[in-house]
Design a protein around this nucleic acid. Structure first.
Length: 296
DNA sequence: TGGTATGTTCCAAA
DNA sequence: TTTTGGAACATACC
């Protein structure tokens, strides 16, 4: 399920009930998923107040505050809304909980009659609500960090952020000679795309996934940049892509152009969509709309 | 049974 | 040095 749009959808859905609440209990049933350890995460977050819920790349970020605190103010968004809000409550930024959903992670509220499978961790709030972290494949991560910048320095540019400019993207692509598909999946370059939206983006930009990043014209680079933003924004608007039992609610599944459509007619030219294997990942293209024209 | 899967990381080979 | 391939992680589904 979770690429940038699904993470953004999760953040928007859970923000109203989480912001302003204090965490009173944390339970983790899979030690490996907690970083640096279950005990360290518990020490870091229990008793703290949730100042803000936001997203960075595919991470759900919980900014924590401590009203007694004399902690350092290493908050993001200096001088902005977040700081003002925090000041009003007389709080200091005190650590961050970073949650990565991995392949199959999702949030659920505990409720009567809601007995989700694969509950791996529980966050209990001061209003009695309990948030469940469910994750069948256990690839998700729950990280406590005091230094947000250090914890996320491995991540590349935010594709929906102001920093994702034509100049910057051009430098990122021209500075290496990689195939476009694995480059788009590399979170240290552009952070947030996964296998589905990488395929959708390349189709929209009419570029073959094996094209080398240093062989694109400026025009193609700009087409790709806009395709990334358009595809992600559309997916967010539709609340992400739904998958079988794992994640429900999103409408993007019916709107995908190539992913999961092998053999079906291209929505643009009716040529059958092809399934390839590029960089060990299932890859879907329209062979006519995305020609390789001699620059693999 | 084997192959596939929305993700990340690490190591070896080219 | 950079890029690519393969395996590993854990589980579910076809």
């Amino acid at each position: 399920m979770p690429e940038l749009p699904e993470v953004e959808t999760t953040v928007r859905a859970f923000r109203p009930r989480l912001e302003g609440r204090r965490i009173v209990r944390f339970v983790s049933r899979v030690a490996k998923q907690a970083n640096p350890s279950v005990a360290a995460v518990r020490r870091g977050i229990v008793g703290k107040r949730i100042i803000r819920l936001r997203r960075r790349a595919k991470y759900i970020v919980v900014d924590l505050g401590d009203e007694r605190g004399e902690g350092p103010e290493d908050a993001p968004g200096r001088g902005s809304k977040a700081r003002r809000r925090r000041k009003q409550r007389g709080q200091r930024q005190r650590g961050h909980l970073l949650i990565h959903l991995g392949m199959s992670g999702r949030f659920e509220w505990a409720a009567e009659g809601n007995r989700p499978q694969h509950v791996r961790a529980i966050l209990e709030l001061d209003d009695g609500h309990r948030m469940l972290f469910c994750d069948a494949r256990k690839f998700g991560k729950i990280i406590y960090a005091t230094d947000f910048k250090a914890a996320t320095e491995h991540l590349g540019v935010e594709p929906l952020g102001r920093g994702f400019t034509a100049v910057r993207f051009e430098r990122l692509l021209r500075g290496r000679a990689r195939q476009l598909k694995p480059l788009l999946l590399d979170q240290s370059i552009v952070a947030g795309l996964g296998n589905i939206y990488a395929d959708e983006t390349l189709f929209r930009a009419r570029l073959h996934p094996a094209t080398r990043s240093d062989r694109l014209t400026s025009r193609e680079i700009e087409r790709l940049r806009r395709a990334i933003q358009t595809v992600l924004l559309k997916a967010i608007r539709l609340r992400g892509t739904s998958f079988d039992q794992v994640y429900r609610g999103g409408q993007m599944w019916e709107r995908l152009t190539v992913y999961g459509r092998a053999g079906l007619p291209c929505r643009r030219c009716r040529t059958p969509i092809e399934a390839l294997r590029i960089a060990q990942r299932g890859t879907h293209i329209c062979p006519k709309c995305q020609p390789l024209d001699g620059r693999p």
